[in-house]
């Protein structure tokens, strides 16, 4: 066993997959010589050389799109977009070329690319280094969107994504890089299945659905609520598209109450999709309105006072769990 941080888990996954398959390569800004601005790709250049660890110009559209072009020729690229805030120039390639290729070629062309994308706030990054942009991609048919919340899944989801023949957007949370860690057996092949949520904490009163940093906060809130005799069931979504209805439905059928916690802005966020599905499919089994705990419909603020105001807190989550439980 070895204590592994979320960041080390991603680094290990890259090492393991590049060793396993010579078609796997990484490209992006500052990922080679510098080892990545967060040091996620540290050691790859030395080990795999500059043909498989490619420092690129500041060209996000090319990084995503050229990776996809290489994928059409049988490679398995893992491009990095340095911050999720910078992914928008690549949106055209991702939304029009990458996500649609398999579908619009009636299965003739595949695009097995895994786009790594550091995301999220509470890192003092301000409006251009803290964004949560997952909803744009959840609204893009043909993509698989994953957002690991634990070190184990950071590794397992990345390895599964690289092996998948479908294009995957892999959102890794910057705040979790060094703040979560767990024992990961060195010799275990960790492969987290795509499209499977995980019930991280059993409970019978309220279902709390979350991912990324907010999942870690939801777990702490659930512990706090337990002090008051409320047992919250916490679901770590892991994959945001396609949505694992089965796991959500099984839990909400049990609890009758559901809340979604996300740090992204409120309107048309991931929580809206879950709330809509529940309203449509499970309305008669709900004992209370579905609640959303989200960031505000504003850009992400910088000043620490404003940032802590913007980002949902453990106390807020605990309070809503209690609210729902008492309804």
């Amino acid at each position: 066993m070895a204590i592994t941080t979320y960041l080390e888990a991603i680094n290990q996954a890259l090492h393991e997959e590049m060793e396993r398959d010579p078609n796997v390569f990484v490209m992006g800004q500052d990922i080679g010589i510098y080892g990545g601005v967060f040091k996620v790709t540290k050691g790859l250049l030395e080990k795999f050389g500059d043909l498989r660890v490619i420092d690129t110009p500041i060209s996000e559209s090319m990084i995503a799109g050229a990776a996809a072009g290489a994928a059409t020729q049988g490679m398995r690229p893992v491009p990095e977009i340095q911050f999720s805030d910078f992914i928008h120039p690549a949106f055209d390639q991702i939304h029009n070329q990458i996500s649609t290729l398999y579908w619009r070629s009636a299965g003739h062309w595949r695009c097995p690319v895994t786009i790594r994308c550091p995301w999220g706030g509470e890192v003092g990054g301000g409006p251009f280094h803290s964004q949560s942009v997952e909803s744009f991609f959840v609204h893009t048919p043909g993509l698989v969107v994953v957002a690991p919340s634990t070190a184990r899944d950071a590794k397992g989801l990345l390895k599964s994504a690289i092996r998948s023949d479908d294009p995957v957007i892999y959102f890794e949370h910057k705040k979790l890089y060094r703040s979560v860690r767990e024992d990961l057996p060195e010799n275990e092949e960790i492969l987290t299945p795509l499209g499977k949520a995980r019930v991280a904490r059993q409970g019978r009163h309220v279902t709390v659905i979350s991912y990324g940093l907010m999942f870690q906060k939801a777990m702490r809130a659930a512990e706090d609520a337990a002090q008051h005799g409320i047992e919250a069931e916490v679901i770590d979504m892991r994959t945001l598209l396609p949505i694992d209805r089965e796991t959500i439905f099984a839990s909400v059928r049990k609890t009758g109450k559901c809340m979604i916690v996300q740090e992204a802005p409120r309107t048309l966020g991931f929580g809206d999709a879950v709330a809509a599905i529940l309203a449509e499919e499970l309305f008669w089994e709900l004992d209370a309105p579905v609640r959303r705990i989200t960031g505000y419909d504003t850009p992400y603020p910088f000043a620490p006072t404003m940032e802590s105001f913007y980002s949902p807190s453990v106390d807020t989550i605990t309070a809503v769990i209690q609210d729902l439980a008492e309804m």
């Binding site: 072009g69 290489a70 020729q73 049988g74 390639q93």
Partner: peptide, 21 residues
């Protein structure tokens, strides 16, 4: 490859194919 209509997109895709080669 089947083209995405947005002008210029395949320049990037072709660049990627060339990178694979």
């Amino acid at each position: 490859i089947t083209a995405a209509s947005n002008v210029g997109m395949q320049s990037v895709t072709a660049c990627g194919a060339a990178l694979a080669f």
